[in-house]
Design a protein around this nucleic acid. Sequence first.
DNA 1: ATAGATATATCGTAACACGATATTATTTCG
DNA 2: CGAAATAATATCGTGTTACGATATATCTAT
Lengths: 137, 137
Amino acid sequence: MTTERDDIQHLAKFRREIRRFLQFSEQAAAATGLQPQQHQLLLQIAGAPNGTQVTIGYIAEVMVLRHHTVVELSKRCEAADLVRRTHDPDDRRCVVLELTAQGQRALHQLSDVHSQQLRELAPSLILALTQIRNSKP
Amino acid sequence: MTTERDDIQHLAKFRREIRRFLQFSEQAAAATGLQPQQHQLLLQIAGAPNGTQVTIGYIAEVMVLRHHTVVELSKRCEAADLVRRTHDPDDRRCVVLELTAQGQRALHQLSDVHSQQLRELAPSLILALTQIRNSKP
DNA sequence: ATAGATATATCGTAACACGATATTATTTCG
DNA sequence: CGAAATAATATCGTGTTACGATATATCTAT
């Protein structure tokens, strides 16, 4: 019972840390004039493993969203001149997503502050994870 | 430039891991008949540090929400018989939040699967964090 | 007792993700 | 080859949710 309570406190602490990070991230995105999800889209486009074709479907998978949600998100980003949408000439069903110059600028700016923030938060996140991992299975 | 690209890939990987965990969490909550935020409320009520008065304001702070959002969330949880809302007799402005028996059951059930899932995801999360932390400042 | 501070509550609104459904392009196979 | 099946993206309507603005209740200090 005592370990149960400890476990729950550890889980709660982990979620507080995550939430604080996400809140930071949302504010950083807003400060750059982006919606949080727009930032995530840019990040997943630019941060895909080398050689990946970045399509709607790929993004839907890695962001764990329905594809039509990604359609809408990518269109909002296109309208904001952050993302370019082109049809793959080899399979014209597929839409390939790339960053515009402005999208790259925004992402690099955001990535800098995120790296820095994560370097600060990493120790307590790792600690929380370690505590959870060491709880009785 | 190469390090920049690596950094972005590491950040993207970290976000993918986080997103996968959150997705798991949302589905687990849904399987128990809870909204994701309802689960978070239960967790932060039960997982507050020992001796904490769990009020609307406290939850607003740790969940990084406006207090009126917590009012609404806690009322939905009250309606679902997961949470009890009582006025602190010493300061009747404050609302104290506690779990009902049913809220405790749901939370324990969810905590079990979350602990297990986090034990699985912890290594790659820690790896991603470590890679970010080791990137050039 | 009253002004100001603190904590919670109410109301209207906008963003977002989803289900259901549709459209366009490619592949399969009879 | 051409129709049916499959795959990828697109459109539309909807419900939830968090928010800003504002209101109410309670406490504190003078």
